[in-house]
Design a binder for these strands. Structure first.
Length: 623
RNA sequence: GGUCCCGUAGCUCAGUUGGAUAGAGCAACAGCCUUCUAAGCUGUGGGUCGUGGGUUCGAUUCCCGCCGGGAUCACCA
């Protein structure tokens, strides 16, 4: 459809050349093998039946053809088959320089000319590895963040936001038109709880009067409600009431429910309070979003969309897709799909979470030409999204199949699970500040930024602290639960964001010095004509790693996994650091070799910057 | 109880559509700064891939059972 699986553009938008549009070496070899098998064994094999993979490090070669599946056609031993194939490839496939056979594995060495050509023809300018938008680019809506307005954001939200933003970047880089949306849950009983507590115990406190960040202030009253509510329940049970009754009949709970009724009846006083307190929260959220570097193209509020699902449910009821019970509640029977029955409207006619999501989905697909809709929501809601798509399908919406739940795992702490009410959450703002603080302490201890103005230094602490946090979270496979150990997250060595950033900063330093010395323009580094001859082993393996980048970007898009980029960029930085350690760059006497190393350095920096930006991580010029 | 997810080094994690002797980081120990940033580089030790079967040329990967952990099945969102 959009891009064929095996091709991509070497050069950016400009450099059209003989190699500008080339097929990857894998598909090239694949085709050759197909032809050879047809010729030698008179058999037409499917591409999927052929196995070509990257050669493992401990063997010589770049690509490996696994010949076991071909033995039934060749009717020879694995070694003989592999050797036949190898010889045939040598003559038919010019990029194959030599081969070796170990057991049933045919290891192919790709010639140096190919790698040199790759370096010469590619535009390492930030577009490398990415696919631009075209006429036929699909539109992808991606919902993430989706906070409640009764408490500040915590570590769990951070994972959601970082994933959501990174996925938008990755999908954009894969030639999609991405629309980032946020659905703010700004109404409901939990919102009323903090409103009520503020009204009863707040004494008119405002963010301005107390100096508190708005979302934190409101969150404090949410906690306060819970404390006071518990006290009431205790009193009631001392008076002989059952725990269940106490929970239901505590005055605070009744008052909160009354407040929700008034809100739905658009009581002016309640609406006023609601508008004011939500306003505080939004200001707080805005700050946190800005600090995290995430953004949205459109923000939906549940207060504006929660009614829209009711109409659709009513229509479904008429068509007999749903059923009404004697008490007036409306249900969807999913027992035929192996699930339970699902409530869609309460007996009092009010809507539930599912009703709202049905409504917003319909609204969005009507409003935008969406080809695909991704919800970045925790795996605790797997059931919800399974039901949502099923119901939309039953309602006859063909686009229901274009809905995808990007289900990510929970963040756990060494102390166990995070629970808002028990105060065991890691607050988002606190965490960000701590990481930036740590970056500062460490930089000062190492004397890294001597000579920088305080503003410049602060900017860099910011980049490093946030880089550490983002990388720590994004490097884990999003589908899996992850452990967040604060002590470990603050480590800036090894497989961490700062390690990658440091590698970048060091390259930039070399490039600055080379520009100062007039050796080359900072962006004008080009590999020399006889690169194929000059490349040493380390430079060659660095080149091969750069070559892999476009594939990694695609794979990250296909699997919706920023972790692939993190793993890749870490490997790349490690590879470069070894090269940097082992070979002089500016001090290299041979001008051609020096030019080659400068170019490789610049290309590496460019790919690091690109990969990191797809994760929403900035890189510093110095650190 | 039904459905679903997870189990890889002491800890945190990688491990491509099934492929060769299962890899990193942290932690521990030992080296490398008169040379482009040592937030770096190099080396050592560390594993019955939870467990028992099955599928096949080959299983950490696919299927089944069991053990252990988690999520969910609300007139909460």
């Amino acid at each position: 459809m959009l891009i064929s699986a095996n091709t991509y553009t070497f050069a950016g938008s400009t450099g059209i050349s003989r190699m500008a549009q080339i097929t990857s070496i894998e598909s090239l070899v694949l085709k050759s093998v197909q032809e050879i098998v047809l010729k030698l064994y008179q058999t037409q094999v499917e591409e999927t039946a052929l196995q070509i993979q990257e050669t493992r490090k401990e063997f010589e070669g770049d690509l490996t053809v696994v010949v076991f599946p071909l033995l039934k056609y060749s009717r020879k031993t694995a070694e003989a088959t592999a050797t036949d194939l190898g010889n045939a490839l040598l003559s038919s496939c010019p990029i194959v320089e030599k081969f070796n056979v170990i057991k049933g594995f045919l290891n192919l060495v790709i010639g140096r000319e190919f790698w040199a050509g790759f370096l010469q023809e590619s535009a390492f300018d930030g577009t490398f590895g990415t696919t631009g938008i075209s006429e036929t680019s699909p539109t992808v809506m991606i919902e993430y963040s989706s906070p409640n307005t009764n408490k500040p954001l915590h570590l769990g939200h951070i994972r959601n936001n970082l994933l959501g933003y990174s996925l938008s970047q990755i999908l954009s880089a894969n030639g999609n038109r991405v629309i980032k949306v946020n659905l703010v849950n700004d109404r409901g009983i939990h919102i009323c709880k903090s409103m009520l507590a503020w009204k009863l115990f707040g004494n008119g406190e405002t963010p301005a009067s107390s100096g508190k960040k708005g979302d934190h202030l409101v969150g404090d009253y949410y906690v306060r409600f819970d404390q006071e509510y518990k006290k009431e329940m205790e009193t009631l049970s001392h008076q002989g009431m059952s725990a269940e009754d106490a929970a239901r009949k505590a005055p605070l709970m009744l008052q909160a429910q009354e407040m929700l009724r008034l809100w739905e009846a658009r009581d002016p006083e309640v609406l006023q309070l609601w508008t004011t307190m939500n306003g505080w929260v939004y200001q707080g959220f805005e700050t946190t979003y800005r600090e995290l570097g995430v953004s949205f193209d459109h923000i939906y509020y549940e207060s504006q969309t929660y009614l829209s699902g009711k109409q659709i449910v009513a229509e479904g009821l008429e068509k007999g897709i749903f059923e009404k019970r004697p008490d007036g509640s409306v249900w969807c029977d999913l027992t035929g799909d192996g699930l339970d029955e699902k409530l869609l409207l309460r007996s009092d006619g009010t809507s539930v979470y599912m009703t709202q999501d049905i409504g917003t989905a319909c609204q969005r697909f009507a409003q935008y030409p969406i080809d695909r809709h991704i919800y970045v929501v925790g795996n605790e809601q797997n059931y919800h999204f399974q039901v949502l798509t099923l119901i939309l399908g039953k309602l006859g919406y063909a686009w229901a199949r274009n809905i995808q739940h990007m289900s990510y795992g929970m963040v756990e702490l060494p102390s166990g699970k995070m629970k808002s009410r028990e105060g065991t959450v890691v607050d988002a703002d606190d965490l960000i500040e701590e990481m930036v603080q740590t970056a500062r302490d460490m930089a000062q201890e190492l004397g890294k930024l001597d000579g920088y103005t305080p503003e410049q230094a602060r900017r860099i602490y910011d980049i490093i602290g946030k880089g550490a946090l983002k990388y720590f979270i994004l490097k884990v496979d999003p589908r899996k639960n992850m452990m967040f150990d604060p002590r470990e997250s603050i480590d800036f060595n090894g497989n961490t964001g700062p390690f990658v950033q440091y590698s970048y900063a060091r390259i930039r330093s070399v490039l600055r010095k080379s520009a100062e010395a007039g050796i080359s323009a900072e962006t004008g580094n080009q590999v020399p004509g006889d690169t194929a001859r000059l490349l040493n082993d380390k430079e060659l393996s660095l080149t091969k790693m750069l070559y892999r980048y476009p594939r990694v970007v695609r794979e990250a898009g296909n699997t919706l996994s920023p972790a692939l980029l993190a793993n890749y960029v870490y490997e790349l930085a490690k590879e470069y650091n070894q090269f940097y350690h082992d070979f002089p760059i500016l001090k290299e006497a041979d001008q051609d070799i020096r030019a080659l190393r400068l170019a490789l350095s610049e290309y590496t920096a460019s790919v690091i910057e690109s990969a990191m930006s797809l994760m929403g991580i900035e890189v510093p010029e110095r650190m």
